[in-house]
């Protein structure tokens, strides 16, 4: 007898994934800018890249960045 449970489970995995693929336009850019803002406190950044790949388990997020220098953390401007 055909196992409808397994068949429907596999159907739903595909359906739920396809529902998640439609990330709103501009969303990735908003996230990239926030990450760039945080990283720029510590690095002289050249470029920040962000990739979001929806998956059945949620999303796989990959961040990569190039920096020319690590910034010196300020120990305070008024040391009088």
């Amino acid at each position: 007898m055909e196992n409808y449970a397994d068949k429907n489970f596999k159907r739903l995995e595909k359906i739920l994934l396809s529902d998640k693929i439609n990330i709103p336009e501009g969303f990735a850019e908003i996230v990239r800018r926030d990450i760039e803002s945080v990283l720029s406190s510590y690095f002289e950044l050249n470029r920040v890249r962000l990739e979001i790949i929806p998956s059945a388990a949620g999303a796989e997020i990959t961040v990569s960045a190039d920096a020319s220098r690590i910034k010196t953390l300020s120990v305070g401007s008024n040391l009088d």
């Binding site: 007898m1 196992n3 409808y4 449970a5 397994d6 429907n8 489970f9 995995e13 388990a57």
Partner: peptide, 18 residues
């Protein structure tokens, strides 16, 4: 129906909805 394979189990549904 879950035991006969006709219906998804509660565990299957929980796995999908996380």
């Amino acid at each position: 129906k879950v035991l006969s394979g006709e219906m998804m189990s509660a565990a299957d549904i929980a796995r999908l909805l996380r």
